[in-house]
Every structure is written in C-alpha cells, then in structure tokens.
C-alpha cells in the first residue's frame, strides 16, 4: 500500500529539482516523486484540481516544501495544509536554503514535521535528500486515509 503513495516535491528551481531527482534516482524512489513548480500547483495537487483534476485520489506520503516559491510561498502552503482537517495528517518537510531563525520558528509554529537546510555541498545535499526520501517515502508509515473517507 505504501508503495503507491507518491512523494510531493515542491521546488520552483528546475536545477534544484533535477539535483533532488538525481539524488532520489540513486535510491530508486524518483519514480514516486511528483514535482510541483510553485505553491499553487501543490495546492492544486492536494485538492485534485487544475492539471491534477483526474489524478488518483489519496494524499501523498510526504510533502517536501521549499520556502521561497512563486505565487504561493511555502509557509502559506504549510498554513493551508495544516488548517485543513483532511490534509493535516500529511507529513510536511521544509526543504530550504534558509537557515534564518525566523523561518525555522514560523515553520514549526505552523506545524511543519521537519525542517531541513539544503547543504551547499552536493554530496551532503545528496545524502540529505536520499535519507529524506528513504525515510518519509519508505521507512515512515504514512497516516491512514480514514480521515478522507470520513468526509
């Protein structure tokens, strides 16, 4: 069952996205990754609307959220997810370049499940993304869909 659950990666920078995908490819989880280019797309995916209207129903295993994104930024997406009874159980991992205390505090205050600073060094970035993908995509047991059926 967990195999079917996708990993949602919100990343507006195509290079960062490519690097992240390259990292996950090494762990053979890249095919589970759904890439969103901004916050609005993330919300479209979660609410099954726009280009994701006809997608398979069900929440992703985890959402990797960049903070700085066009249209709707990471914190706003996070706020929306944690304010929605059906989306709240989804684990959200902030994956960002910012080490600012304010961002950390804001993210956790809004209910982020983890906060990871993208390391500049590629091998560190690689291992961080690998570990995140493995942990949240494979090791971690995602919340059941019961909330959704209760709707």
């Amino acid at each position: 069952m967990t195999v079917a659950k996708p990993i949602l990666l919100a990343e507006d920078n195509p290079r960062d996205a490519e690097l992240a995908l390259a990292a996950m490819e090494a762990e053979h989880i890249s095919d589970k990754v759904v890439l969103c280019r901004d916050g609005a797309e993330v919300l479209d995916y979660l609410y099954c609307r726009g280009q994701f209207k006809s997608r398979l129903r069900g929440n992703p295993a985890v959402v990797f959220l960049d903070l700085k994104m066009p249209k709707v930024n990471g914190l706003e997406v996070l706020r929306t997810i944690k304010a929605d009874v059906n989306l709240r159980p989804i684990p959200v991992v902030m994956l960002t370049s910012s080490r600012e205390e304010r961002d950390l505090a804001d993210s956790y205050a809004l209910g982020a499940n983890a906060y990871v600073v993208k390391p500049v060094e590629f091998h560190k970035f690689l291992s961080a993304v690998k570990e995140l993908g493995t942990f949240w995509g494979i090791i971690n047991e995602p919340p059941p869909e019961s909330c959704r059926s209760a709707q």
């Binding site: 690097l19 390259a22 910012s98 080490r99 993208k118 500049v120 590629f122 690689l126």
Partner: peptide, 13 residues
Amino acid sequence: SHDLRAPLRHIDG
C-alpha cells in the same frame, strides 16, 4: 542566505 546559496549548490551538484 537563500538566493546566493542555490547557485553554489548547483555548481557543486
């Protein structure tokens, strides 16, 4: 901290 780090990460990556 945010924008300048990204290209560096890309160069190294």
